[in-house]
């Protein structure tokens, strides 16, 4: 078991925790945090699996670098939307839709 594989395992666990958080948490700010946790897990899997043999592969690293910046932008946009929503309704939870 190399350190790269351990990173990938940790990334898988983070991703699953993030998915569970997005599904279960109603508070929008915490949901955005859970979404970021999901993204971080995916990045860890990508980088960790790429270097599970020994040497680092620059291609996944560059892609993860791109992904991090895009994740920052997406988070900022989500925060802007949440702020607007909070300003309009005063709530931090989305209205619950009827199931049927």
């Amino acid at each position: 078991m190399t350190s790269g594989l351990i990173f990938a395992f940790a990334g898988a666990a983070l991703f699953a925790m993030g998915v569970a958080g997005v599904l279960l948490i109603d508070h929008l700010l915490r949901r955005i945090l859970a979404f970021n946790l999901m993204g971080s897990g995916a990045f860890l899997v990508l980088v960790g699996l790429a270097q599970r043999s020994d040497a680092a592969d620059p291609v996944p690293q560059a892609m993860v670098l791109t992904g991090i910046v895009v994740a920052v932008a997406a988070t900022a946009l989500a925060l802007g939307l949440v702020r607007r929503f909070h300003g309009l309704t005063g709530k931090m939870e989305l209205p619950v839709a009827d199931d049927d």
């Binding site: 895009v70 932008a73 997406a74 900022a76 946009l77 802007g80």
Partner: peptide, 8 residues
């Protein structure tokens, strides 16, 4: 990134 900023 630019699109996200425009969105905000």
């Amino acid at each position: 990134l630019l699109l996200a900023l425009l969105g905000i």
